[in-house]
Each structure stands twice: as C-alpha cells, then as structure tokens.
Simulated assay, not measured.
Amino acid sequence: MEVQQLLDEYIDVYIKSLKYLDTFVSEPAMEYNLSFEQYLILHDIAEKANVTLARIADKRGVTRSAISRQIKVLLNLDYIYQQRDEKDHRRQYLHLTPRGRQIEEIVTKKARTRFGSWVDIFGEDKAASLLDFIKQFSKVTKLENGGKSAEEDD
C-alpha cells in the first residue's frame, strides 16, 4: 500500500472515529466540569502524597505554566487546595478537598468501567497491542519534535 493511500485511509478513519476517542475517554470527567487533563491531575493527587505542580509537569512532559492553568481551574472548583511546605515555603503541595476526592473516585470508577468495556470487546491482546503502538508513536513524535512533547509545542 502506498503512502498516499495510507494517508487517505488514516484521514477517513480519523474523521469517522478517532476524533471521538478523546471525547469517549474524557466524557466521565466532563460531567463535573473537568477536562481529561484536569481529572488526571486529581488522580495523581489522589494516588500520591506530596504532589507538586512541578512533579506533575515533569511526569506529563509539559510546561509548568500548562499545569498551573489546570490547577487554577481545580482550585476554583474547590476540588483541590494548596499547602505550603513547612521547610521550604516556595514549595506547595496539592491536596484533594473532600469534594475533590469524591469526584476523583466517581470519575475513576466510570473511566475504568468504560475502558473495561473496550477490553471486553476487543480483548486484552488487542488492547495491549494498540497501547504498544501508541507508545512507539509517541516516542517517534517526541524525537521528531526535538525531545519535546506535542503539548509543549502549543
């Protein structure tokens, strides 16, 4: 199959299905005025102690300002709060509010159920294979961007 034919088929598949993939994955969070990225921040805070803005940015491979914008929304929604480190007042730890913890648990359960339905339909082998391809694609894309993630180019 030639490159142009592959490109045409990719565009067709993208228009008909892939562009809806993000919505399918992020829909459980939307009910609570969250983007998928904001939900992921809530999830990180729920899973680990002493989470900082810098640690999240490093983990995601994006700028601190990108994470800061997401954190401002979470603060305004009263899903998180910040607490200064007693030893280093420049560092602030992020914590879930009781409402934030409740929302994170609800969205995590819904996301797990939705993803589980995909695995049930396609099987674990296909799901793992697709995930491997996406990881490889991400590595190549990052290399082509000079080591930066696509989010950093925005």
Rank of each mutant, 00 (worst) to 15 (best):
E2S: 05
V3Y: 07
V3C: 03
Q4G: 03
Q5V: 01
Y10Q: 00
Y14E: 01
I15C: 07
K19N: 09
K19L: 07
Y20K: 06
Y20C: 01
L21P: 00
D22H: 06
D22Q: 05
T23Q: 09
P28E: 02
E31M: 07
N33K: 12
F36P: 00
E37P: 00
Q38M: 03
Q38N: 04
I41E: 06
L42C: 08
I45M: 09
I45P: 07
A46Y: 15
E47H: 13
E47K: 15
A49D: 14
N50H: 14
N50C: 07
V51C: 13
A57D: 12
A57I: 12
D58L: 10
R60D: 05
R60P: 08
G61S: 06
V62T: 14
T63F: 07
S68P: 00
S68V: 00
I71N: 03
I71Y: 02
K72C: 03
L74M: 03
L74T: 01
L74S: 04
N76S: 11
D78I: 00
D78Q: 09
D78K: 10
Y79F: 04
I80H: 08
I80L: 08
Y81K: 08
Q83K: 11
K87Y: 08
H89C: 01
H89Y: 08
H89D: 03
H89K: 09
Q92W: 02
L94E: 04
L94P: 02
P98W: 04
R99Q: 14
G100Y: 04
G100P: 03
R101H: 12
R101L: 13
E104W: 05
I106H: 07
V107S: 10
A111L: 12
T113H: 10
T113F: 08
R114E: 09
G116S: 01
W118D: 06
V119T: 12
D120Y: 05
D120L: 07
I121W: 13
D125Y: 14
A128K: 14
S129C: 11
S129D: 15
L131G: 10
L131T: 15
Q136L: 10
F137H: 11
S138P: 00
K139H: 09
V140P: 00
T141A: 12
T141C: 05
E144V: 09
E144W: 14
N145G: 05
G146C: 02
G146I: 01
G146M: 02
G147I: 03
S149C: 06
S149I: 01
A150N: 11
A150W: 14
E151F: 12
D153I: 11
